[in-house]
Design a protein around this nucleic acid. Structure first.
Lengths: 162, 162
DNA sequence: CGGACTATTGCAAGCAGTTGCAATAGCAAC
DNA sequence: GTTGCTATTGCAACTGCTTGCAATAGTCCG
């Protein structure tokens, strides 16, 4: 709580950091919807911006706590909900069904998980095109690629097990 | 605990119920692997045999408790694990990622969920064939259809929202 | 039938995530 | 700078599921 106060204007005067631009963008997006900019939300967003690949909710809580030990889990989860609503965040599902988040700026992709060895690959949009097309034609259903998680057995495991 | 004892032989003498055949099959499958046949497992299996469509773990616990109020959740969940291992049970994922179980005897199928209206459809194996083929060719990856859950927007919602 | 081996159970603690509610504090307007 | 409206927070209880452990009880074997 000791980093707020009059220092707010200071961050605006910082030199051209790409992060600050994004912060301002999210802040504006929130304000445009009548939502509020709070120190807690700012912390979550800053942590997310420094995140590569995926984070689970629990990991995010932990990382937020590193920066602000007073972090409350429910606040983080509720912030996640808001950030997904404004499109800053997307989620997919880990093989165990748990939600995994990634910042919306990352290229959209799905996942492939081997149930046997536990390995995991990303599926680029063009590779998923066949899936999209199939359900688009048969049902006029638009599959969400970033939510696509396929489970099965990889080439290596199939070869090993015969 | 008062329904065990010498009444065990009584159930064997019941007239040709298809359920009893399956019970015997599962029991044998377990025994073949050095696993054990217990009243608790039997209860779970009987509940599952009377189940249509999907059940979540929590629902299963509840239904088991209806028949045996002494049912312990962890026992049910551990039984689920065993039954999946012997192939009596399969699981997919609900749109929220939670596991949904169905008895292996049911035809294999995947699921389609509309993120907008919450509706859900089954995907028959032949409809999923395109998905299977795509990843079979590009990665030699065998997609598990019963685990296939696609999220997106259905025709109705796309039409309504433009 | 009785004994031994060990899979399974029941229990209690714990983790991930959600929810209702009263108190707090952004934000806009004056 | 103050005031008021209400979004948001912190808290505490709760759901769903998992895990470690000691006690119990299936199952095999003689």
């Amino acid at each position: 709580m000791n980093e707020s106060g009059s220092s707010a204007s200071a961050s605006a005067s910082a030199s051209a950091s790409p992060a600050s631009t994004d912060l301002a963008h999210v802040r504006e997006e929130l304000r445009a919807r009548g939502l509020r900019w709070t120190p807690q939300r700012r912390n979550v967003i800053e942590v997310l911006q420094r995140t590569r690949g995926h984070v689970t909710g629990a990991e995010l809580v932990e990382r937020c706590r590193d920066r602000d030990p007073a972090t409350i889990p429910s606040t983080v989860y509720r912030t996640i909900d808001v950030l997904e609503e404004i499109g800053f965040l997307r989620h997919g599902h880990a093989p165990d069904g748990r939600e995994e988040f990634h910042v919306g700026a990352e290229p959209e992709h799905g996942h492939l998980h081997c149930a046997s060895c536990g390995a995991s690959w990303e599926v680029a949009p063009d590779e998923a095109a066949a899936v999209l097309a199939a359900f688009e034609q048969s049902r006029a259903f638009a599959v969400d690629v970033s939510h696509l998680t396929l489970t099965g057995r990889c080439a290596a495991c199939r070869g090993a097990a015969g």
